[in-house]
Write a protein that binds this DNA or RNA. Sequence first.
RNA 1: CCAGCAGGUCGGGCGGUCGCCGGCGGUUUAUCCGUCGGAGGAAAGUCCGGGCCCCACAGGGCAGGGUGCUGGGUAACACCCAGGUCCCGUGAGGGACGGAAAGUGCCACAGAGAACAGACCGCCGGGCCUCUUGAGAUUGCCCGGUAAGGGUGAAACGGUGGGGUAAGAGCCCACCGCUUCCCCUGGUGACAGGGGAAGGCACGGUAAACCCCACCCGGGGCAAGGCCAAAUAGGGAGGCGUUCCCGCCUUUGGCGGGAUAAGGGUGGCCCGCCCGAUGCCUCCGGGUAGGCCGCUGGAGGCGCCGGGUAACCGGCGUCCCAGAUGAAUGACCGCCGCCCCGUAAAGAGCGGGGAACAGAACCCGGCUUACAGACCGGCUGGCUCC
RNA 2: GGUCCCGUCGUCUAGCCCGGUUAGGACACCGGCCUCUCAAGUCGGCGGCAGGGGUUCAAAUCCCCUCGGGACCA
Length: 116
Amino acid sequence: MDFSFPKEYRLRKRREFRKVYEEGQKIYSQYFTIHVLKNQLGHPRLGITVTRKIGKSVVRNRWKRIIREAFRLNKHKLPPWDIVVTVKRGYKPPKLQEVEKDFVEAIAKLRIISTD
RNA sequence: CCAGCAGGUCGGGCGGUCGCCGGCGGUUUAUCCGUCGGAGGAAAGUCCGGGCCCCACAGGGCAGGGUGCUGGGUAACACCCAGGUCCCGUGAGGGACGGAAAGUGCCACAGAGAACAGACCGCCGGGCCUCUUGAGAUUGCCCGGUAAGGGUGAAACGGUGGGGUAAGAGCCCACCGCUUCCCCUGGUGACAGGGGAAGGCACGGUAAACCCCACCCGGGGCAAGGCCAAAUAGGGAGGCGUUCCCGCCUUUGGCGGGAUAAGGGUGGCCCGCCCGAUGCCUCCGGGUAGGCCGCUGGAGGCGCCGGGUAACCGGCGUCCCAGAUGAAUGACCGCCGCCCCGUAAAGAGCGGGGAACAGAACCCGGCUUACAGACCGGCUGGCUCC
RNA sequence: GGUCCCGUCGUCUAGCCCGGUUAGGACACCGGCCUCUCAAGUCGGCGGCAGGGGUUCAAAUCCCCUCGGGACCA
Protein backbone atom coordinates (compact mmCIF):
# COMPACT_ATOMS: atom_id res chain seq x y z
CA MET A 1 0.00 0.00 0.00
CA ASP A 2 1.25 3.47 -0.85
CA PHE A 3 1.91 5.68 2.16
CA SER A 4 4.00 8.32 0.38
CA PHE A 5 3.32 12.05 0.65
CA PRO A 6 4.70 14.00 -2.32
CA LYS A 7 4.10 17.66 -3.10
CA GLU A 8 1.05 17.03 -5.31
CA TYR A 9 -0.81 15.97 -2.19
CA ARG A 10 -0.28 19.31 -0.42
CA LEU A 11 -1.88 22.72 -0.60
CA ARG A 12 0.94 25.19 -1.16
CA LYS A 13 -0.53 28.56 -2.13
CA ARG A 14 -2.48 31.12 -0.23
CA ARG A 15 -5.22 31.22 -2.89
CA GLU A 16 -5.67 27.44 -2.65
CA PHE A 17 -6.32 27.80 1.08
CA ARG A 18 -8.68 30.77 0.47
CA LYS A 19 -10.67 28.79 -2.08
CA VAL A 20 -11.26 26.03 0.46
CA TYR A 21 -12.24 28.50 3.19
CA GLU A 22 -14.65 30.41 0.96
CA GLU A 23 -16.28 27.63 -1.11
CA GLY A 24 -15.91 24.54 1.05
CA GLN A 25 -17.66 22.93 4.00
CA LYS A 26 -16.57 23.20 7.61
CA ILE A 27 -16.65 20.84 10.60
CA TYR A 28 -15.29 21.05 14.15
CA SER A 29 -13.57 18.14 15.86
CA GLN A 30 -11.95 17.97 19.28
CA TYR A 31 -8.61 19.46 18.22
CA PHE A 32 -9.30 20.96 14.78
CA THR A 33 -11.42 23.10 12.57
CA ILE A 34 -11.51 21.25 9.24
CA HIS A 35 -12.43 22.89 5.92
CA VAL A 36 -13.09 20.66 2.92
CA LEU A 37 -13.69 21.21 -0.83
CA LYS A 38 -14.09 18.67 -3.61
CA ASN A 39 -11.30 18.88 -6.24
CA GLN A 40 -10.85 17.51 -9.80
CA LEU A 41 -7.50 15.77 -9.27
CA GLY A 42 -8.69 12.30 -8.31
CA HIS A 43 -6.76 12.37 -5.01
CA PRO A 44 -6.94 14.31 -1.74
CA ARG A 45 -4.69 17.23 -0.82
CA LEU A 46 -3.77 18.42 2.66
CA GLY A 47 -3.15 21.91 4.02
CA ILE A 48 -2.28 22.62 7.66
CA THR A 49 -2.69 25.91 9.52
CA VAL A 50 -1.00 26.35 12.89
CA THR A 51 -0.93 29.99 14.01
CA ARG A 52 1.59 31.62 16.32
CA LYS A 53 -1.04 31.56 19.06
CA ILE A 54 -0.75 27.79 19.32
CA GLY A 55 2.75 27.90 20.76
CA LYS A 56 6.40 28.32 19.95
CA SER A 57 8.01 26.79 16.91
CA VAL A 58 8.75 23.43 18.55
CA VAL A 59 5.07 23.01 19.42
CA ARG A 60 3.85 24.23 16.03
CA ASN A 61 6.19 21.85 14.18
CA ARG A 62 5.06 18.98 16.39
CA TRP A 63 1.40 19.58 15.45
CA LYS A 64 2.21 19.75 11.74
CA ARG A 65 4.21 16.53 11.78
CA ILE A 66 1.56 14.59 13.65
CA ILE A 67 -1.23 15.84 11.37
CA ARG A 68 0.80 15.08 8.28
CA GLU A 69 1.44 11.57 9.56
CA ALA A 70 -2.27 11.03 10.24
CA PHE A 71 -3.07 12.11 6.67
CA ARG A 72 -0.29 10.03 5.14
CA LEU A 73 -1.28 6.78 6.85
CA ASN A 74 -4.97 7.20 5.90
CA LYS A 75 -4.87 8.90 2.53
CA HIS A 76 -5.93 5.70 0.64
CA LYS A 77 -9.28 5.87 2.50
CA LEU A 78 -9.89 9.57 1.81
CA PRO A 79 -12.09 11.03 -0.96
CA PRO A 80 -10.58 13.41 -3.56
CA TRP A 81 -10.96 16.57 -1.49
CA ASP A 82 -8.83 19.52 -0.55
CA ILE A 83 -8.64 19.36 3.24
CA VAL A 84 -7.44 22.24 5.44
CA VAL A 85 -6.81 21.40 9.08
CA THR A 86 -6.62 24.35 11.50
CA VAL A 87 -5.44 23.60 15.02
CA LYS A 88 -7.55 24.96 17.89
CA ARG A 89 -6.00 26.83 20.80
CA GLY A 90 -5.50 25.40 24.25
CA TYR A 91 -4.23 21.88 23.62
CA LYS A 92 -0.82 20.30 23.99
CA PRO A 93 0.15 18.13 20.99
CA PRO A 94 -1.27 14.64 21.79
CA LYS A 95 -0.24 11.15 20.66
CA LEU A 96 -0.42 10.24 16.98
CA GLN A 97 -3.22 7.68 17.50
CA GLU A 98 -5.48 10.29 19.10
CA VAL A 99 -4.96 12.75 16.25
CA GLU A 100 -5.51 10.00 13.67
CA LYS A 101 -8.81 8.99 15.30
CA ASP A 102 -10.01 12.58 15.61
CA PHE A 103 -9.11 13.40 11.99
CA VAL A 104 -10.56 10.24 10.38
CA GLU A 105 -13.83 10.47 12.33
CA ALA A 106 -14.31 14.11 11.33
CA ILE A 107 -13.76 13.31 7.65
CA ALA A 108 -16.14 10.33 7.86
CA LYS A 109 -18.83 12.59 9.30
CA LEU A 110 -18.38 15.07 6.47
CA ARG A 111 -18.58 12.26 3.93
CA ILE A 112 -21.99 11.22 5.23
CA ILE A 113 -23.29 14.79 5.13
CA SER A 114 -22.05 15.43 1.59
CA THR A 115 -23.57 12.25 0.14
CA ASP A 116 -27.04 13.18 1.40
C1' C B 1 36.45 12.66 53.53
C1' C B 2 33.53 17.25 54.14
C1' A B 3 32.62 22.26 52.71
C1' G B 4 33.80 25.69 48.80
C1' C B 5 36.01 28.68 44.34
C1' A B 6 36.79 29.44 39.37
C1' G B 7 36.85 26.69 34.35
C1' G B 8 35.96 23.15 30.38
C1' U B 9 33.26 19.01 27.70
C1' C B 10 28.81 16.23 26.49
C1' G B 11 23.43 16.75 25.73
C1' G B 12 21.76 8.89 25.02
C1' G B 13 23.79 4.61 21.48
C1' C B 14 22.84 0.59 17.68
C1' G B 15 19.50 -1.77 14.16
C1' G B 16 14.87 -2.37 11.20
C1' U B 17 10.15 -0.70 8.60
C1' C B 18 7.09 3.46 6.51
C1' G B 19 7.80 8.73 4.98
C1' C B 20 9.99 13.98 3.95
C1' C B 21 14.03 17.75 1.95
C1' G B 22 18.56 18.47 -0.86
C1' G B 23 23.26 17.14 -3.79
C1' C B 24 25.43 13.68 -7.30
C1' G B 25 24.96 9.59 -11.00
C1' G B 26 21.79 6.76 -14.25
C1' U B 27 17.05 6.63 -16.71
C1' U B 28 13.32 8.78 -19.32
C1' U B 29 11.71 13.90 -20.68
C1' A B 30 9.27 13.63 -16.81
C1' U B 31 8.92 9.36 -13.62
C1' C B 32 11.49 5.87 -11.14
C1' C B 33 16.20 3.64 -9.32
C1' G B 34 20.92 3.92 -6.79
C1' U B 35 24.00 6.55 -3.50
C1' C B 36 25.51 10.35 0.03
C1' G B 37 24.06 14.18 3.48
C1' G B 38 20.07 16.38 6.62
C1' A B 39 19.16 21.24 13.62
C1' G B 40 21.65 23.73 18.40
C1' G B 41 24.75 24.86 22.59
C1' A B 42 21.95 27.91 22.91
C1' A B 43 19.50 27.31 16.14
C1' A B 44 16.15 31.56 21.14
C1' G B 45 15.96 37.04 22.70
C1' U B 46 17.34 40.53 18.52
C1' C B 47 20.95 43.55 22.92
C1' C B 48 25.86 44.96 20.42
C1' G B 49 29.66 44.36 16.34
C1' G B 50 31.00 43.07 11.24
C1' G B 51 30.74 40.80 6.11
C1' C B 52 27.34 41.22 1.84
C1' C B 53 23.78 44.31 -1.10
C1' C B 54 21.08 48.95 -2.42
C1' C B 55 20.74 54.34 -1.68
C1' A B 56 23.39 58.92 -0.36
C1' C B 57 28.28 61.15 -0.18
C1' A B 58 34.54 66.60 -2.24
C1' G B 59 36.12 67.99 2.62
C1' G B 60 34.84 69.85 7.40
C1' G B 61 31.38 71.20 11.22
C1' C B 62 26.56 71.08 14.00
C1' A B 63 22.65 68.03 15.88
C1' G B 64 21.77 62.95 17.63
C1' G B 65 23.58 58.26 19.57
C1' G B 66 27.30 55.12 21.79
C1' U B 67 31.77 53.83 24.64
C1' G B 68 34.59 55.28 29.18
C1' C B 69 41.16 52.84 34.58
C1' U B 70 45.79 50.99 31.38
C1' G B 71 48.00 47.93 27.60
C1' G B 72 47.02 44.20 24.09
C1' G B 73 43.78 40.79 20.72
C1' U B 74 40.38 41.39 16.54
C1' A B 75 37.24 42.53 10.34
C1' A B 76 34.79 45.03 14.44
C1' C B 77 32.50 45.40 19.27
C1' A B 78 29.38 47.30 24.70
C1' C B 79 33.36 41.15 23.60
C1' C B 80 37.98 38.53 25.10
C1' C B 81 43.06 38.38 27.49
C1' A B 82 46.73 40.48 30.72
C1' G B 83 47.70 44.26 34.17
C1' G B 84 46.46 48.60 37.82
C1' U B 85 43.86 51.04 42.06
C1' C B 86 39.94 50.58 45.67
C1' C B 87 36.28 47.40 48.26
C1' C B 88 34.55 42.31 50.04
C1' G B 89 36.15 37.26 51.59
C1' U B 90 40.44 33.18 56.58
C1' G B 91 41.42 31.65 51.45
C1' A B 92 40.96 29.81 46.28
C1' G B 93 38.60 34.08 44.33
C1' G B 94 34.69 37.93 43.44
C1' G B 95 32.97 43.05 42.50
C1' A B 96 33.55 48.37 41.05
C1' C B 97 36.09 51.84 37.34
C1' G B 98 37.11 59.25 33.10
C1' G B 99 35.96 64.37 35.29
C1' A B 100 32.08 66.89 41.14
C1' A B 101 39.24 71.54 42.30
C1' A B 102 35.02 74.29 34.64
C1' G B 103 29.92 75.77 35.30
C1' U B 104 24.44 74.93 36.35
C1' G B 105 20.57 72.16 38.85
C1' C B 106 18.75 68.94 42.85
C1' C B 107 19.38 66.89 48.02
C1' A B 108 12.25 65.33 50.22
C1' C B 109 11.04 63.97 55.57
C1' A B 110 13.40 64.58 60.23
C1' G B 111 16.57 68.09 62.45
C1' A B 112 18.79 74.08 65.79
C1' G B 113 21.50 73.69 61.31
C1' A B 114 22.09 70.60 54.54
C1' A B 115 26.50 73.36 51.31
C1' C B 116 31.28 80.68 51.53
C1' A B 117 26.91 75.71 57.62
C1' G B 118 24.38 75.64 62.27
C1' A B 119 23.31 77.42 69.04
C1' C B 120 17.55 73.07 70.30
C1' C B 121 19.43 70.62 74.78
C1' G B 122 24.06 71.02 77.17
C1' C B 123 28.71 73.71 78.83
C1' C B 124 30.88 78.74 80.19
C1' G B 125 30.86 84.25 81.27
C1' G B 126 27.94 88.70 82.27
C1' G B 127 23.27 91.40 83.60
C1' C B 128 18.22 91.65 85.86
C1' C B 129 14.43 89.44 89.13
C1' U B 130 13.77 86.10 93.56
C1' C B 131 15.96 84.08 98.42
C1' U B 132 19.67 85.60 102.03
C1' U B 133 22.56 90.25 107.00
C1' G B 134 26.33 88.94 103.63
C1' A B 135 29.80 85.78 100.84
C1' G B 136 26.97 83.13 97.78
C1' A B 137 23.15 79.73 95.84
C1' U B 138 18.92 78.55 92.90
C1' U B 139 14.91 79.09 89.37
C1' G B 140 13.30 82.08 85.34
C1' C B 141 14.42 85.74 81.60
C1' C B 142 17.94 88.55 78.56
C1' C B 143 22.92 89.40 76.16
C1' G B 144 27.28 87.01 74.62
C1' G B 145 31.01 82.89 74.00
C1' U B 146 31.53 77.65 72.65
C1' A B 147 31.12 72.66 67.52
C1' A B 148 34.10 68.67 73.09
C1' G B 149 29.02 65.83 74.46
C1' G B 150 23.41 64.59 73.41
C1' G B 151 19.71 64.11 69.77
C1' U B 152 17.98 64.15 63.95
C1' G B 153 19.39 62.30 59.36
C1' A B 154 21.44 58.70 53.71
C1' A B 155 24.90 62.59 54.72
C1' A B 156 26.62 67.24 60.28
C1' C B 157 33.51 69.85 58.41
C1' G B 158 39.79 64.23 60.43
C1' G B 159 41.66 60.65 64.76
C1' U B 160 44.59 59.85 69.49
C1' G B 161 47.28 62.26 73.34
C1' G B 162 49.08 66.72 75.50
C1' G B 163 49.15 72.01 76.10
C1' G B 164 45.77 75.84 76.45
C1' U B 165 41.01 78.20 78.22
C1' A B 166 35.76 81.12 81.79
C1' A B 167 34.16 76.86 78.84
C1' G B 168 35.98 75.19 74.35
C1' A B 169 37.88 74.51 69.37
C1' G B 170 44.04 72.70 64.60
C1' C B 171 43.60 77.73 68.76
C1' C B 172 48.88 75.60 69.44
C1' C B 173 52.17 71.05 69.56
C1' A B 174 53.53 65.60 68.71
C1' C B 175 52.23 61.22 66.09
C1' C B 176 48.83 59.08 62.48
C1' G B 177 45.78 60.47 58.34
C1' C B 178 44.60 64.03 54.22
C1' U B 179 45.23 67.62 50.05
C1' U B 180 48.29 70.22 46.44
C1' C B 181 52.98 70.78 44.06
C1' C B 182 58.14 69.35 42.75
C1' C B 183 62.21 65.80 42.00
C1' C B 184 64.45 60.78 41.42
C1' U B 185 63.86 55.45 40.19
C1' G B 186 61.02 51.29 37.75
C1' G B 187 57.16 50.42 34.03
C1' U B 188 54.87 51.21 26.82
C1' G B 189 51.03 52.71 30.38
C1' A B 190 47.26 52.75 34.37
C1' C B 191 50.45 53.09 38.44
C1' A B 192 54.13 51.72 42.14
C1' G B 193 58.52 52.77 45.36
C1' G B 194 61.58 56.65 47.52
C1' G B 195 62.81 61.84 48.76
C1' G B 196 61.34 66.94 49.50
C1' A B 197 58.28 71.49 49.89
C1' A B 198 53.73 73.90 51.12
C1' G B 199 48.89 73.84 53.66
C1' G B 200 46.06 73.17 59.92
C1' C B 201 42.55 70.65 56.79
C1' A B 202 40.12 74.60 52.92
C1' C B 203 37.13 70.83 48.10
C1' G B 204 29.66 66.29 51.10
C1' G B 205 26.67 63.44 47.48
C1' U B 206 24.55 63.09 42.59
C1' A B 207 27.11 62.98 35.70
C1' A B 208 22.15 55.19 34.65
C1' A B 209 20.69 64.98 36.23
C1' C B 210 22.19 68.82 32.47
C1' C B 211 27.13 68.88 31.25
C1' C B 212 32.86 68.78 30.23
C1' C B 213 36.91 65.82 28.06
C1' A B 214 38.73 61.76 24.79
C1' C B 215 37.52 58.26 21.06
C1' C B 216 33.84 55.92 17.66
C1' C B 217 29.28 56.01 14.46
C1' G B 218 26.06 58.11 6.92
C1' G B 219 20.91 55.52 6.16
C1' G B 220 18.53 50.96 5.31
C1' G B 221 18.13 45.91 5.47
C1' C B 222 18.19 39.09 1.90
C1' A B 223 10.64 40.93 2.51
C1' A B 224 18.37 43.90 0.78
C1' G B 225 19.15 43.54 -4.32
C1' G B 226 19.27 41.45 -9.37
C1' C B 227 17.35 38.49 -13.72
C1' C B 228 13.36 36.06 -16.76
C1' A B 229 8.37 36.98 -17.53
C1' A B 230 2.11 35.11 -18.96
C1' A B 231 -3.19 37.16 -18.95
C1' U B 232 -5.80 41.97 -18.63
C1' A B 233 -5.74 47.32 -18.78
C1' G B 234 -2.96 51.45 -20.11
C1' G B 235 1.80 54.11 -22.62
C1' G B 236 5.21 54.80 -27.13
C1' A B 237 6.66 53.79 -32.47
C1' G B 238 5.41 51.89 -37.28
C1' G B 239 1.94 49.76 -40.99
C1' C B 240 -3.09 49.07 -43.01
C1' G B 241 -8.16 50.98 -42.96
C1' U B 242 -11.19 55.24 -41.74
C1' U B 243 -15.90 54.28 -48.03
C1' C B 244 -20.82 54.12 -50.25
C1' C B 245 -26.36 53.71 -50.31
C1' C B 246 -31.38 54.13 -47.96
C1' G B 247 -34.89 55.82 -44.04
C1' C B 248 -36.13 58.98 -39.72
C1' C B 249 -35.18 63.34 -36.52
C1' U B 250 -34.98 70.51 -35.54
C1' U B 251 -29.00 71.83 -37.28
C1' U B 252 -22.00 70.75 -41.65
C1' G B 253 -24.89 66.38 -36.49
C1' G B 254 -27.37 61.94 -34.38
C1' C B 255 -30.08 57.14 -34.63
C1' G B 256 -31.50 52.63 -37.35
C1' G B 257 -30.74 49.23 -41.61
C1' G B 258 -27.78 47.33 -45.79
C1' A B 259 -23.22 46.70 -48.85
C1' U B 260 -18.03 46.57 -48.84
C1' A B 261 -12.34 47.83 -46.84
C1' A B 262 -8.21 46.80 -43.20
C1' G B 263 -8.52 42.76 -40.14
C1' G B 264 -10.64 38.42 -37.59
C1' G B 265 -13.31 33.45 -37.29
C1' U B 266 -14.10 28.51 -39.75
C1' G B 267 -10.28 25.39 -42.40
C1' G B 268 -4.02 21.87 -43.74
C1' C B 269 -4.53 25.74 -47.94
C1' C B 270 -7.60 28.40 -51.92
C1' C B 271 -12.64 29.47 -53.05
C1' G B 272 -16.83 29.94 -50.18
C1' C B 273 -19.53 31.25 -45.67
C1' C B 274 -19.84 34.27 -41.06
C1' C B 275 -18.40 38.78 -38.12
C1' G B 276 -16.94 43.63 -39.29
C1' A B 277 -16.70 51.39 -39.88
C1' U B 278 -16.15 49.26 -33.81
C1' G B 279 -10.61 49.94 -35.39
C1' C B 280 -6.89 45.86 -36.54
C1' C B 281 -1.79 43.97 -36.82
C1' U B 282 3.53 44.11 -35.56
C1' C B 283 7.40 45.82 -32.47
C1' C B 284 9.36 48.41 -27.97
C1' G B 285 9.72 49.86 -22.79
C1' G B 286 7.65 49.71 -17.69
C1' G B 287 5.49 45.86 -14.93
C1' U B 288 1.60 42.12 -11.84
C1' A B 289 0.82 36.66 -11.06
C1' G B 290 4.56 33.10 -11.29
C1' G B 291 9.64 31.42 -11.65
C1' C B 292 15.09 31.82 -11.09
C1' C B 293 19.59 33.85 -8.86
C1' G B 294 21.27 35.77 -4.14
C1' C B 295 21.81 30.48 -1.04
C1' U B 296 25.73 28.47 1.33
C1' G B 297 33.13 26.93 0.76
C1' G B 298 33.31 30.27 5.26
C1' A B 299 37.01 36.07 9.49
C1' G B 300 35.06 27.45 8.27
C1' G B 301 36.13 22.53 11.24
C1' C B 302 40.07 19.10 12.82
C1' G B 303 45.35 17.72 13.51
C1' C B 304 50.60 18.99 13.84
C1' C B 305 54.51 22.66 14.20
C1' G B 306 56.13 27.67 15.50
C1' G B 307 55.46 32.77 18.09
C1' G B 308 53.01 34.95 22.47
C1' U B 309 52.13 34.91 30.09
C1' A B 310 47.29 34.87 27.59
C1' A B 311 43.29 36.38 24.31
C1' C B 312 45.15 35.32 19.65
C1' C B 313 48.32 35.03 15.30
C1' G B 314 51.30 32.47 11.37
C1' G B 315 52.67 28.03 8.46
C1' C B 316 51.69 23.05 6.70
C1' G B 317 48.40 18.96 6.09
C1' U B 318 43.48 17.27 5.82
C1' C B 319 37.92 17.42 5.51
C1' C B 320 33.26 19.43 2.83
C1' C B 321 29.58 19.56 7.23
C1' A B 322 21.26 21.38 6.29
C1' G B 323 19.70 24.81 2.46
C1' A B 324 13.58 24.53 2.99
C1' U B 325 9.87 28.61 1.04
C1' G B 326 1.89 26.93 3.68
C1' A B 327 8.47 26.06 4.80
C1' A B 328 12.11 18.93 5.16
C1' U B 329 15.14 16.98 9.41
C1' G B 330 9.36 12.87 11.29
C1' A B 331 6.43 8.24 12.92
C1' C B 332 6.45 3.21 14.74
C1' C B 333 9.10 -1.15 16.68
C1' G B 334 13.25 -4.00 19.02
C1' C B 335 17.87 -4.29 21.94
C1' C B 336 21.50 -1.90 25.14
C1' G B 337 23.05 2.11 28.61
C1' C B 338 21.27 5.99 32.62
C1' C B 339 17.72 7.45 36.68
C1' C B 340 13.33 6.38 39.92
C1' C B 341 9.60 2.97 42.24
C1' G B 342 8.05 -2.19 43.83
C1' U B 343 9.92 -7.19 45.16
C1' A B 344 15.08 -9.18 47.61
C1' A B 345 19.39 -8.63 53.65
C1' A B 346 22.69 -5.60 49.69
C1' G B 347 23.00 -7.17 44.76
C1' A B 348 21.48 -10.05 40.53
C1' G B 349 16.89 -11.07 38.27
C1' C B 350 11.74 -9.75 37.26
C1' G B 351 7.71 -5.99 36.64
C1' G B 352 6.34 -0.77 35.94
C1' G B 353 7.62 4.29 34.86
C1' G B 354 10.85 8.54 33.40
C1' A B 355 14.71 11.45 30.53
C1' A B 356 15.68 18.86 30.11
C1' C B 357 15.77 23.69 27.48
C1' A B 358 14.54 23.89 22.78
C1' G B 359 13.77 23.72 15.88
C1' A B 360 18.17 26.53 11.10
C1' A B 361 15.57 30.58 7.14
C1' C B 362 21.82 35.39 4.00
C1' C B 363 26.31 34.35 6.82
C1' C B 364 29.80 35.13 10.81
C1' G B 365 32.02 37.20 16.04
C1' G B 366 30.06 38.26 20.92
C1' C B 367 26.58 39.21 24.96
C1' U B 368 22.15 37.80 27.52
C1' U B 369 18.41 34.39 28.82
C1' A B 370 16.49 28.88 29.25
C1' C B 371 18.28 23.92 30.48
C1' A B 372 16.87 16.92 33.18
C1' G B 373 21.27 14.96 33.89
C1' A B 374 26.43 13.13 33.13
C1' C B 375 31.74 13.72 32.91
C1' C B 376 36.85 16.01 33.17
C1' G B 377 40.97 17.96 35.31
C1' G B 378 42.73 22.67 38.52
C1' C B 379 42.73 25.41 43.07
C1' U B 380 41.28 26.92 48.48
C1' G B 381 39.84 25.99 53.72
C1' G B 382 38.99 22.25 57.51
C1' C B 383 39.32 17.26 59.71
C1' U B 384 41.78 12.51 59.76
C1' C B 385 45.52 8.76 58.53
C1' C B 386 50.51 7.21 56.71
C1' G C 1 12.59 36.49 8.74
C1' G C 2 13.05 41.78 9.78
C1' U C 3 11.58 46.80 11.89
C1' C C 4 9.04 49.29 15.84
C1' C C 5 5.56 50.52 19.91
C1' C C 6 3.00 49.65 24.60
C1' G C 7 2.31 47.32 29.81
C1' U C 8 -0.40 51.75 36.49
C1' C C 9 -6.69 49.07 41.05
C1' G C 10 -11.79 44.41 38.02
C1' U C 11 -12.16 48.30 33.47
C1' C C 12 -10.69 53.21 31.31
C1' U C 13 -6.99 56.46 32.59
C1' A C 14 -3.56 60.97 35.34
C1' G C 15 1.35 61.02 37.25
C1' C C 16 6.93 59.28 33.96
C1' C C 17 10.32 64.04 29.92
C1' C C 18 12.59 67.28 34.94
C1' G C 19 13.15 60.96 40.88
C1' G C 20 10.84 63.10 46.97
C1' U C 21 3.37 63.39 50.95
C1' U C 22 -0.64 57.71 52.07
C1' A C 23 0.29 56.94 43.46
C1' G C 24 -4.95 60.89 42.05
C1' G C 25 -9.80 60.46 39.26
C1' A C 26 -14.18 58.07 36.81
C1' C C 27 -17.07 53.56 36.34
C1' A C 28 -17.64 48.86 38.87
C1' C C 29 -17.72 46.12 43.78
C1' C C 30 -18.76 46.05 49.37
C1' G C 31 -21.00 48.53 53.77
C1' G C 32 -23.86 52.65 56.01
C1' C C 33 -27.48 56.90 55.39
C1' C C 34 -31.93 58.25 52.55
C1' U C 35 -36.75 55.33 50.74
C1' C C 36 -42.40 51.19 51.96
C1' U C 37 -38.67 48.93 48.30
C1' C C 38 -35.38 49.64 44.09
C1' A C 39 -32.81 53.29 41.28
C1' A C 40 -30.61 58.04 41.83
C1' G C 41 -28.11 60.91 45.57
C1' U C 42 -24.70 61.02 49.75
C1' C C 43 -20.71 59.19 53.31
C1' G C 44 -16.99 55.54 54.01
C1' G C 45 -14.20 51.21 52.48
C1' C C 46 -11.74 47.47 49.26
C1' G C 47 -8.14 47.41 45.42
C1' G C 48 -2.74 48.85 41.40
C1' C C 49 2.86 50.62 39.24
C1' A C 50 4.00 43.18 34.40
C1' G C 51 8.48 40.46 36.94
C1' G C 52 13.75 40.67 38.41
C1' G C 53 18.40 43.27 38.97
C1' G C 54 21.18 47.92 39.12
C1' U C 55 22.18 53.59 39.84
C1' U C 56 20.64 56.86 44.00
C1' C C 57 19.86 58.68 50.76
C1' A C 58 15.28 57.72 47.92
C1' A C 59 12.65 54.67 41.59
C1' A C 60 5.81 54.06 38.86
C1' U C 61 9.57 57.72 37.03
C1' C C 62 16.60 56.79 35.14
C1' C C 63 19.58 52.20 33.15
C1' C C 64 19.79 46.73 31.97
C1' C C 65 17.54 41.82 31.48
C1' U C 66 13.12 38.74 31.26
C1' C C 67 7.81 38.02 30.38
C1' G C 68 3.23 39.46 28.02
C1' G C 69 0.31 42.25 24.31
C1' G C 70 0.04 44.94 19.67
C1' A C 71 1.35 47.37 14.81
C1' C C 72 4.01 47.54 10.16
C1' C C 73 7.15 45.47 5.85
C1' A C 74 6.41 40.48 0.34
